[in-house]
Simulated assay, not measured.
Amino acid sequence: MAGFVYIVTNSKRGTLYIGVTSNLERRIFEHREGLTPGFASKYGCTQLVWYEEHLQIATAIQREKSLKRWYRQWKIELIETVNPEWRDLYFALW
């Protein structure tokens, strides 16, 4: 089963949340609608600003754990390499 690692935020260079899922569209919809209790909902992280697809969910989980250990600046640089304007990528998924 494929997996996705993703980063959602509440604003440009704002609070970052890193997650992993097998269904990116559904998961981001849940973030946007406030259906995910916890950190992301508490801080209003609803905008998808970065994601990466992996062929195996286990690889995606490993990547998520790795990214969570990164310094904040490294995460910002990762986002800005592919999304310098911090556009919400949710609508580009289709």
Rank of each mutant, 00 (worst) to 15 (best):
V82Y: 04
R26S: 11
N23T: 13
W70F: 14
V49G: 03
N83L: 05
N83H: 05
I61M: 09
A2I: 13
L48W: 10
C45V: 01
H54S: 08
H31V: 00
Y6E: 07
W50H: 13
K68M: 15
E77Q: 03
Q56F: 13
I57V: 07
E52C: 13
V49D: 04
R13C: 01
P84R: 02
F4H: 14
K42W: 03
V82K: 10
R69V: 06
Y51T: 08
V5T: 12
D88Y: 08
G19Y: 02
T21L: 01
Y71L: 11
W94D: 14
R13T: 00
I7G: 05
F91M: 11
D88I: 08
E53V: 09
G19P: 03
W70R: 15
I18T: 14
F39S: 02
Q73P: 03
S66H: 13
I61V: 10
I28V: 14
E77W: 00
L93C: 10
I57E: 03
G34E: 00
A92Y: 13
A2R: 15
K75M: 13
T59M: 08
N10S: 02
R26Q: 12
V8W: 09
R63H: 11
G34D: 00
W50C: 06
I61W: 03
T15K: 15
E30C: 07
T59A: 12
R72H: 15
T21H: 01
V49C: 04
L35S: 00
E52V: 06
N83E: 05
T46W: 06
R87L: 09
R69S: 15
D88L: 09
A92L: 15
R13K: 07
V8P: 10
V5P: 03
R69L: 14
T46K: 15
E85P: 01
E64G: 08
T9C: 11
W50I: 06
E64S: 07
I28P: 07
R27L: 04
K75A: 12
K65V: 09
R26D: 11
Q62K: 15
A40C: 03
E25F: 09
R32S: 04
G19Q: 02
I18K: 09
Y90H: 14
Q47A: 08
W86S: 13
I79P: 03
L78Q: 05
K12N: 06
L67R: 12
G44R: 01
W74N: 05
L89R: 09
A92G: 14
R13Y: 01
R32G: 05
R63Q: 12
I76G: 01
L93F: 08
Y51I: 07
E64P: 08
A40D: 04
A60I: 05
C45H: 01
P84K: 01
A92P: 03
N23Q: 14
A40W: 02
E64W: 09
L89F: 07
G19V: 02
H31G: 00
Q47P: 03
E77N: 03
L89S: 08
R32F: 02
Q73K: 12
P37S: 01
S41Q: 09
S66C: 10
I18A: 10
I7T: 10
S22D: 12
S66E: 15
I57A: 01
L55S: 11
S41F: 00
Q62T: 12
T36N: 04
K68I: 14
R69N: 14
Y71Q: 13
L89M: 09
T59W: 06
L78V: 07
N10C: 01
V82M: 07
W50G: 07
K68W: 06
F29D: 05
R27F: 04
L24C: 10
L89P: 08
